[in-house]
Each structure stands twice: as structure tokens, then as C-alpha cells.
């Protein structure tokens, strides 16, 4: 692909790129760093760099090592599995292109590309993390529409366009964890749930049938670690690769919990 090389014609295109990977052999061992050099291919993504490393797992100083492990699935930024911290920022390694990183501002750069696993989730191995916390939180807020039963429920209720637009935007969440990695209130071991599940609570509360479980969701949202622990740093909305309207979702669920709490103060048990 020589044509692609000419896109950065005014600057020197490096023939290899140094990639520094934060590695960890087991969940309970200490992390360490290893540098790798991979051939520069314009338009390559980070996953293909990792594939290069996997096919020839030799460090920049010539040592043969175990290949770097990572997680991925869709390769088109819809599953969220490949999320890692790339040059300090959480994003998907399938949709992060190499030339965006090396021609950043200065043209070519001698700075290595730094890959780390997300810091807010337990590392299984190398860049592969366990994202169960997000899925467990989805269970806690009952992130589903209750339609199980033995009889036909008939056709669903009609939905207006505005609500559909909002819900479509919220439905794009791929549980990647970027919003949580960037959130100063969400830490490795506290119980804050973060923007991801707040967005999904709104998504299901806005669904006409899903709203049957609204009170349960709001109670989960009012529990320790719920929405009240958001500090409004609004990093989540800026890093979300699927551009969910997270701050609007947080404010909406904030309003729902306010109303719910006042109602249950006066009418609850």
C-alpha cells in the first residue's frame, strides 16, 4: 500500500514504530513494561500492531517473550471488548489508527506508543481486563424489559420520535468502560457505578414496558455507589466513543431519583 504512505508526505514516515506495553502475567502478579518494534503501516490499527507482535513476539531488545494478550471481538467499535488505555486515554484498539498517533502534530515522533490495560478493572492478563463489574451493575438496575410470561402481551406501545431519538442514542452503549476509566469518581475498588449504567437505567426507564421496573431501578440508583456519587466532572461524555448523551442522562436520572425520593418520603412505607 504505497499510496497510503503519501498521505503524510511532508513529514518523514517512520518505518517502524516503538510500542511500549504494560504487561502482567497473571491477575495477582506485578505489572512490568516491555518495548516492541512493529513495522509502520499507514491505516493500521492498534489491534494489527498487536497481531504483528503476536506473530513475532520479540522485544525491541531482541528477547523472545510470550505474546501479548488482549481482548477483541467485532473489530468495528461496537462490542467494546478491545478497550485499553492508549497514550494515557481510554479508547478502542480496533478503531485507533496508527498514523493518528505517530503523525500527531509533529509529524513523526520518537515517542513510543504506550498501551496499558484499563486501570479501573482487574487485569486478567496483559491488556485483557475483566469487565464484569459493568455487567453486574446492569443486573442490579434490572437492565431489561420485563416481557417474560405465558400469554401474548400484544403489540408494544407506540413511542414518539423524540423519545426514540434519545433512546437510540442511549442504546449504542457497548459496555466498553471508557466512561468509567475516565471518571475521577469511579475507582478500582469503590462502589460507584458510573455513567455507563446510569445511561442504561434511563434507557430502560424510558421504554414504555421497561418502565414497569422504574422504581426498582431508581432504588438501585439511590443506593450507595448510585447516581448521587457522580461529581459532575463530565469526562464520561467526552470520552464515550459511541457519543452517548451521558451528562443529560445523568441529569435526567438525577431528576427521576429526586422525584422518586420525595414521593417515597411522603407515600412510601
Amino acid at each position: 500500500m504505497n499510496a497510503s504512505q503519501s498521505t503524510t508526505s511532508s513529514t518523514k514516515t517512520p518505518s517502524t514504530v516503538r510500542i511500549k506495553v504494560k504487561r502482567q502475567d497473571r491477575p495477582d502478579t506485578d505489572p512490568y513494561w516491555q518495548p516492541f518494534d512493529v513495522p509502520f503501516v499507514a491505516n493500521a490499527n492498534i489491534i494489527s500492531c498487536l497481531q504483528q507482535i503476536a506473530s513475532k513476539p520479540v522485544t525491541a531488545d531482541g528477547r523472545r517473550v510470550a505474546p501479548v494478550a488482549w481482548d477483541c471481538n467485532c473489530l468495528e467499535e461496537v462490542c467494546g471488548a478491545c478497550t485499553m488505555v492508549i497514550n494515557g486515554v481510554a479508547r478502542q484498539s480496533c478503531s485507533t489508527l496508527l498514523h493518528e498517533l505517530v503523525s500527531d502534530g509533529t509529524g513523526t515522533t520518537d515517542e513510543p506508543i504506550v498501551l496499558e490495560p484499563m486501570s479501573k478493572f482487574p487485569v486478567l492478563r496483559d491488556l485483557f481486563v475483566d469487565r464484569s463489574r459493568m455487567f453486574n451493575n446492569l443486573k442490579a438496575i434490572k437492565g431489561w424489559v420485563p416481557i417474560d410470561g405465558t400469554t401474548s402481551l400484544g403489540s408494544g406501545p407506540k413511542e414518539d420520535q423524540a423519545s426514540q431519538d434519545m433512546r437510540y442514542a442511549l442504546s449504542r452503549c457497548m459496555t466498553c468502560g471508557c466512561c468509567l476509566e475516565a471518571c475521577p469518581q469511579f475507582t478500582f475498588d469503590n462502589d460507584f457505578v458510573g455513567a455507563q449504567v446510569i445511561g442504561q437505567a434511563l434507557y430502560f426507564n424510558m421504554h414504555e414496558t421497561g418502565a414497569e421496573l422504574k422504581d426498582d431501578r431508581l432504588e438501585a440508583m439511590e443506593a450507595p455507589g448510585g447516581i448521587a456519587d457522580c461529581g459532575n466532572a463530565q469526562n464520561c461524555v467526552k470520552v464515550c466513543p459511541k457519543e452517548l448523551p451521558l451528562t443529560e442522562a445523568i441529569a435526567s436520572v438525577g431528576r427521576q431519583t429526586t422525584v422518586h425520593a420525595i414521593k417515597s418520603f411522603f407515600t412510601g412505607k
Binding site: 495477582d28 464484569s132 463489574r133 453486574n136 442490579a140
Partner: peptide
């Protein structure tokens, strides 16, 4: 309701 429930199922090793 505790929002976060540690996982003992699924593929999680840790």
C-alpha cells in the same frame, strides 16, 4: 439494594 455485586460466576478469574 447494593448496586455492585461481586461476581462469582462467569468467566472472571479474579
Amino acid at each position: 439494594i447494593r448496586v455492585y455485586v461481586p461476581s462469582h460466576a462467569g468467566p472472571a478469574i479474579v
